[in-house]
Design a binder for these strands. Structure first.
Lengths: 166, 166
DNA sequence: GCATACTAGACAGGTACCTGACCAAATTAG
DNA sequence: CTAATTTGGTCAGGTACCTGTCTAGTATGC
């Protein structure tokens, strides 16, 4: 390594979060590209696990994926343009449409859905099951505490439970 | 909480990273706004701790903050426009200029520099010193392992040591 | 049964990052 | 001492999120 690798640099916590998140996204991208779905962007892969055969509203997709409906709508637009999804009318509600997978989407689904797991598996190998599990648990716990301590944060972190987003 | 809070939802790791990172950024913003520096955007606050009295190049700022030079240049532009920084010619190298703090910048510096610490302190209170330290350590260790295992990743994670960025 | 909420989604715009291409100054090499 | 390379910075453009506002359908309350 270039510098003094033993000096315990004590990197900013936020930097660690950012870098790790980025590695995750790049890993997703690599998995998809390898399986021949290079036109799915890493941020859009999160849609696939949540689209059931009978279809689902954008709103609900957003809640499940932990993003705002506008963000999810963008992903759905993108994937619709790329031919992975379709929006069909919702017979039960004229305001919304239901997002369903196309044939191509059904082919991509298992790959997209497991890409995240694959990365986590690799990371478990790089550390150890106990270590990774501890890390996961600590992150979850901290976020939970933040939500409990700050009502504003709790609103933002509603993806932790299943109440409304927006 | 809204849903079944005992069901161990096992949230996606990437979601945890993203949410926590966002809470961090919002915390920075709140600290700055409280101290009267509401025109400093959370992403730009990272500049302040690294600007010494004699000035520093954008390139070096980028390395220290763990971002690309283009990203850092944007932050410096922004802060220059807001009157916190100036760019003065570099007598030792005609290609670059040196970023220095203005008076306003010197006033903001301690606030911006400590905003991150303040959040970490709050988070330590919400969990415990041991827990937070463990989390920090585990993140660092995982990132280090990723860098060691994958040469491509190592290049991206150079902020962990002090070699080149770009 | 009609006014009044309350949605779902679309539209506009912003932030914090990123990559790639490029130029001009500086360094190095023959 | 000129040619080739390296380096600092800029320009252009992209991604994955965000907030705020608006419209049009839907549900509700009296």
């Amino acid at each position: 390594m270039g510098g003094d690798s033993h000096a315990e640099k004590r990197l900013r916590f936020s930097l660690l979060l950012r870098l790790l998140h980025r590695e995750y996204a790049l890993g997703i991208e690599a998995s998809l590209a390898e399986a021949g779905f290079g036109d799915i962007r890493s941020g859009d892969a999160k849609v696939f696990p949540f689209v059931p055969p009978e279809g689902i509203q954008v709103r609900d997709l957003a809640i499940r994926a932990g993003v705002r409906k506008q963000t999810m709508a963008q992903s759905v637009d993108q994937l619709e343009r790329a031919g992975y999804l379709e929006r069909v009318p919702n017979p039960r509600d004229g305001r919304s449409r239901l997002v369903v997978l196309t044939e191509r989407g059904r082919a991509a689904r298992p790959v997209a859905a497991s890409a995240g797991d694959a990365i986590e598996r690799r990371w478990i190998e790089l550390t150890s099951p106990e270590e990774f599990d501890a890390l996961h648990g600590l992150l979850h716990r901290l976020l939970d505490r933040i939500g409990r301590a700050d009502p504003d944060a709790a609103v933002r972190l509603t993806s932790l439970d299943d109440s409304r987003l927006d």
